[in-house]
Amino acid sequence: MEQTSALGSFVRRNRGLVVVVLLLIALLIFGSFYSDRFRTTSNILNVFEQSTGLALVSLGQTLTILTGGIDMSVGSMISLLSLLTSGLIDGKANLVVPVAAGILVLGALIGAINGLGIVWLKVHPLIVTLGMGALLQGIALLYSLGPAGKVPPNFKFLAYGKVLGLPIAAVFAILLFIAVALFLRYVRLGRYIYAVGDDHTGARLMGLPRSRVIIFVYTMSGICCALTSIYLVSRFGVGQPYTGINYTLASITPVVVGGTLLAGGRGGVIGTLLGAYLISLINNVLNFMDVSTHYQLIAQGLIVIAAVSIYVDKRKRI
């Protein structure tokens, strides 16, 4: 295989990414032929903007999955944190910054507790984070059974504001993804994440700080949930105790579609970002085709099946 071109080897190494990009292009072409309104810049920007919430939560999920774990508490965490965001700000403009900062810290803290629980109790991440998810959902419902609080009007700028014609939240998400991609590639801790996911025993034998890596990725997932929560409150104007309920499972789809193996050790965040765009774009195209949201669910499930069948995973754990 020495003679294969650089492009050929790139394609082989990143088969998943190539498939996702091709699908994105195919959908864009199909949509453009299907509807004039699809082709408009405002619609494309709309798709871009709508992917932000899913992209942000999936970013943290990618990191936990890269270590061979999973974070099943993200949905409840987003529900609780978005509820607290609007509940604590409660329309007071001067509280926006301190509350937002507090929410980020709280997200990091909850994530760190997830990580500590996994390391100390030696219990499967699925179980620890499921437990945490139930705990957080209960707390969210204790705090409020319905939408709580409100945010000042200019808070909506985070979700709807534009800089140079581009939605700022979506641009922020891209920058964050690029930063994490560089981190994974060039920072030692980032490379450790792959090592831990590749082989738990091997990583420990080599003296890798497995515990530290695991606490780190769940903390990052918590921070990503906090960012998602702030974005969602900005978008909807209020937090609800069930805002995040669908995100737990939804956050896994872009990760898997983007080529990260559920067993850990392989994949990356750029695939996840493209995966989030793909899902957002598919839903948009189906909307234009007047396909009801019910069938959009079927499409999403079939995408997962197709994706996992493409990336055959020989080292499955859960």
């Binding site: 999973i70 996992v308 499955k316």
Partner: peptide
């Protein structure tokens, strides 16, 4: 396919 993803799908 990992059981988690297969049954999720």
């Amino acid at each position: 396919v990992s059981p988690f993803l297969a049954t999720l799908a």
